[in-house]
Simulated scan of single mutants.
Amino acid sequence: MLGIAAAVLFFVAFLINAAEITTNHAFSSGNVMLLGLTLLALHVAGIGSGWAGPRRRR
């Protein structure tokens, strides 16, 4: 789930950069890209990959 959110943020950063849209400093393409990298790192670390539920021991 976090990987999809990261891909969406990368696409938004690309659109901001390619269209040369002027935004305030909080939503610049670099900051949006860093948010995407943070989400991608969390996804690779295994956070947000889904709920595993309780496991039974035999």
Score class of each variant (00 low, 15 high):
Gly30Leu: 06
Gly36Ser: 08
Ser29Thr: 08
Phe11Thr: 14
Gly48Leu: 14
Gly48Met: 15
Gly50Glu: 15
Trp51Ser: 11
Phe27Pro: 13
Asn24Thr: 00
Gly46Trp: 04
Leu40Lys: 15
Ile4Pro: 01
Leu15Trp: 03
Val32Trp: 06
Val44Thr: 07
Gly3Cys: 03
Ala18Gln: 04
Leu37His: 03
Ala45Lys: 04
Leu9Tyr: 11
Ser29Val: 05
Arg58Ile: 10
Leu37Gln: 05
Ala18Lys: 04
Gly50Met: 15
Met1Ile: 03
Ala13Lys: 13
Arg55Thr: 12
Thr22Asn: 05
Asn24Glu: 02
Ala26Thr: 05
Leu15Pro: 03
Met33Pro: 00
Met1Gln: 07
Leu39Ile: 01
Thr38Asn: 03
Gly53Ile: 08
Gly3Met: 05
Gly46Lys: 09
Arg55Tyr: 08
Leu9Asn: 13
Gly48Lys: 11
Gly53Val: 08
Ala5Ser: 04
Ala5Leu: 01
Trp51Met: 13
Ile21Asn: 01
Glu20Arg: 00
Asn31Pro: 09
Ser28Phe: 06
Gly36Pro: 08
Phe27Tyr: 13
Ala6Asn: 03
Gly36Met: 06
Leu34Thr: 11
Val32Cys: 07
Gly48Trp: 13
Glu20Gln: 00
Gly30Ser: 07
Asn17Cys: 01
His25Leu: 13
His43Phe: 06
Val12Ile: 12
Phe14Trp: 15
Gly53Ala: 07
Gly46Cys: 11
Gly53Met: 06
Ala52Tyr: 10
Ile16Glu: 00
Gly46Ala: 09
Pro54Glu: 11
Asn17Phe: 00
Glu20Ile: 02
Ile16Gly: 02
Phe10Pro: 08
Val44Asp: 03
Ser49Gly: 15
Asn17Gln: 05
Ala26Leu: 10
Gly3Glu: 09
Asn31Lys: 11
His43Pro: 03
Thr22Pro: 05
Gly48Asp: 12
Leu2Thr: 00
Ile47Pro: 03
His43Cys: 04
Asn17Pro: 00
Thr38Val: 09
Val12Asp: 14
Leu42Met: 14
Arg56Leu: 11
Ile16Met: 02
Thr22His: 07
Val32His: 03
Leu42Tyr: 10
Ala26Asp: 06
Val44Glu: 04
Leu15Phe: 08
Leu39Gln: 04
Phe27Lys: 14
Met33Ile: 02
Val8Trp: 12
Val12Cys: 13
Arg55Asn: 13
His43Met: 01
Ala5Gly: 00
Ile21Ala: 02
Gly48Ser: 12
